[in-house]
Every structure is written in structure tokens, then in C-alpha cells.
Deep mutational scan, measured.
Amino acid sequence: MQIFVKTATGKTITLEVEPSDTIENVKAKIQDKEGIPPDQQRLAFAGKQLEDGRTLSDYNIQKESTLHLALR
């Protein structure tokens, strides 16, 4: 499925993911596309910060959802 990640600079990244993917996997995909190390990424959805060990389906993130990326 496709999801979107909006960066602090307003850029939107499109990612191909599975509901079973962990947040860690998603951060690795962002690193592949943007070169941002996962340990510098903070992802949020619906106002909640997402934890590495959880999956997209844990957070009820569905196709075409938009996550927000902040850098630490």
C-alpha cells in the first residue's frame, strides 16, 4: 500500500509499505529515499509519536495515510 510522509520542510515522500511493516522498517525506507538516518527520525500520526517496534497496523495506519516526520 502507499503512504505519504510529510517532512518538516513541507516535502511529501511517497512510500510503498505493508500494514505489517514496523515503524523501524518505514524509517529505513525513508533513509533509502532521503538519506536521513533512522535514529534522527521521529514519526507521528494523528498526533501520536510512533514507536520503532510497533507496526503500521498497530496504529491503524491505512493506505494513503500521511505520517509526519520530524528530525531530532
Results as ranks from 00 to 15, higher is better:
residue 1 M to E: 02
residue 1 M to N: 04
residue 1 M to G: 03
residue 1 M to H: 07
residue 2 Q to N: 08
residue 2 Q to D: 11
residue 2 Q to T: 14
residue 3 I to T: 01
residue 4 F to I: 08
residue 4 F to K: 15
residue 5 V to Y: 02
residue 5 V to T: 02
residue 6 K to Q: 14
residue 6 K to F: 09
residue 6 K to D: 07
residue 7 T to C: 03
residue 7 T to H: 12
residue 8 A to H: 11
residue 8 A to W: 10
residue 10 G to N: 13
residue 10 G to F: 06
residue 12 T to Y: 15
residue 12 T to V: 13
residue 12 T to D: 07
residue 13 I to D: 01
residue 13 I to E: 02
residue 13 I to R: 02
residue 14 T to W: 09
residue 14 T to E: 14
residue 15 L to H: 00
residue 15 L to A: 02
residue 15 L to W: 01
residue 15 L to Y: 02
residue 16 E to K: 15
residue 16 E to Y: 11
residue 18 E to K: 12
residue 18 E to V: 13
residue 19 P to C: 03
residue 20 S to Q: 09
residue 20 S to F: 14
residue 20 S to K: 11
residue 20 S to D: 11
residue 22 T to R: 09
residue 22 T to K: 08
residue 22 T to P: 05
residue 23 I to E: 01
residue 24 E to P: 04
residue 24 E to A: 06
residue 24 E to I: 07
residue 24 E to T: 10
residue 25 N to S: 07
residue 25 N to Q: 11
residue 25 N to Y: 11
residue 25 N to R: 12
residue 26 V to C: 03
residue 26 V to L: 11
residue 28 A to E: 07
residue 28 A to F: 10
residue 29 K to S: 05
residue 29 K to V: 05
residue 29 K to N: 05
residue 30 I to M: 04
residue 31 Q to D: 11
residue 31 Q to F: 12
residue 31 Q to K: 04
residue 32 D to G: 12
residue 32 D to H: 14
residue 33 K to D: 07
residue 33 K to E: 08
residue 34 E to W: 05
residue 34 E to R: 04
residue 35 G to C: 03
residue 35 G to A: 10
residue 35 G to Q: 05
residue 36 I to K: 03
residue 36 I to G: 02
residue 36 I to Y: 14
residue 37 P to N: 09
residue 37 P to R: 14
residue 37 P to Q: 06
residue 38 P to N: 13
residue 38 P to Y: 10
residue 38 P to K: 13
residue 38 P to E: 04
residue 38 P to A: 10
residue 40 Q to F: 06
residue 40 Q to S: 13
residue 41 Q to F: 08
residue 41 Q to H: 03
residue 41 Q to M: 13
residue 42 R to N: 10
residue 43 L to I: 11
residue 43 L to H: 01
residue 43 L to T: 01
residue 43 L to R: 00
residue 44 A to S: 10
residue 44 A to H: 15
residue 45 F to A: 04
residue 45 F to M: 06
residue 46 A to N: 05
residue 47 G to V: 02
residue 49 Q to G: 10
residue 49 Q to E: 13
residue 51 E to F: 04
residue 51 E to H: 06
residue 52 D to I: 05
residue 53 G to A: 12
residue 53 G to K: 11
residue 54 R to E: 06
residue 54 R to S: 13
residue 54 R to F: 14
residue 54 R to T: 11
residue 55 T to N: 06
residue 55 T to S: 11
residue 55 T to A: 06
residue 55 T to R: 05
residue 56 L to C: 03
residue 57 S to K: 13
residue 57 S to N: 06
residue 57 S to W: 13
residue 57 S to C: 03
residue 58 D to T: 12
residue 58 D to L: 05
residue 58 D to I: 05
residue 58 D to E: 13
residue 59 Y to E: 04
residue 59 Y to W: 03
residue 59 Y to R: 01
residue 59 Y to N: 03
residue 60 N to F: 09
residue 60 N to A: 10
residue 60 N to K: 05
residue 62 Q to T: 10
residue 62 Q to W: 14
residue 62 Q to V: 10
residue 63 K to D: 11
residue 64 E to D: 07
residue 64 E to H: 14
residue 64 E to V: 04
residue 65 S to E: 13
residue 67 L to Y: 01
residue 68 H to M: 08
residue 69 L to Y: 02
residue 69 L to K: 00
residue 69 L to P: 01
residue 70 A to C: 04
residue 70 A to Y: 08
residue 70 A to V: 11
residue 70 A to E: 15
residue 71 L to K: 13
residue 72 R to E: 13
residue 72 R to M: 14
